[in-house]
């Protein structure tokens, strides 16, 4: 068992087989740096619980194919990314930090699916981007590919 500690000082025990899906922790274990509790100063307990849920489910990815549990895993993944935008972004940052490749892929794809049809204004708000372009610069970008800014599918809502 490996002990992980979130930034709000909560400890979680995770099976080694599950936790080594994180390249970062795997490297720490291999280098003998994970003898006691591993503090994760960037991840809060709420996000860490989600990540551990994912790691436990994906513990034996290889076996899933043999036992025909692929569909089950696919369904789990679909349910897993069904979370709020802020929450999803927290999980992406955690997955990136812990270097969990499959989780990163899954969550970034979900983020991309949600952003796909968003308007520029909505994207700025969702990703907390401050617009520092002048009106002229903005117009120039629009003029380069006006077709990218048109269409009934463009969605201005933020969620």
């Amino acid at each position: 068992m490996v002990k992980l500690k979130s930034n709000d000082d909560k400890e979680f025990e995770v099976e080694e087989a599950a936790v080594i899906q994180s390249e970062m922790i795997k490297n720490m274990i291999e280098d003998g740096c994970a003898t006691s509790v591993i503090p994760l100063p960037n991840i809060d307990s709420k996000t860490l619980i989600k990540v551990i849920e994912y790691l436990n489910k994906h513990i034996n990815m290889g076996k899933a194919a043999e036992t025909g549990e692929e569909d089950d895993l696919k369904e789990f993944d679909e349910q897993f990314v069904n979370m709020g935008w802020e929450e999803l972004f927290d999980v992406i940052m955690a997955a990136n930090y812990l270097n969990i490749h499959e989780l990163m892929e899954l969550c970034c794809q979900s983020a991309a699916d949600r952003l796909k049809n968003k308007s520029v204004r909505a994207v700025r708000e969702m990703l907390k981007i401050t617009n520092d372009l002048t009106e002229e610069e903005e117009q120039e970008i629009i003029n380069d590919a006006p077709w990218a800014f048109e269409g009934p599918e463009i969605d201005d809502t933020v969620n």
């Binding site: 970034c108 991309a112 952003l115 796909k116 308007s119 981007i129 629009i142 380069d144 990218a148």
Partner: peptide, 17 residues
Amino acid sequence: ILKRLPVQSVLRFKCAS
């Protein structure tokens, strides 16, 4: 995230900043 988006969305998001 951006590399998973269609060309149309990526070109639009150039306007973000």
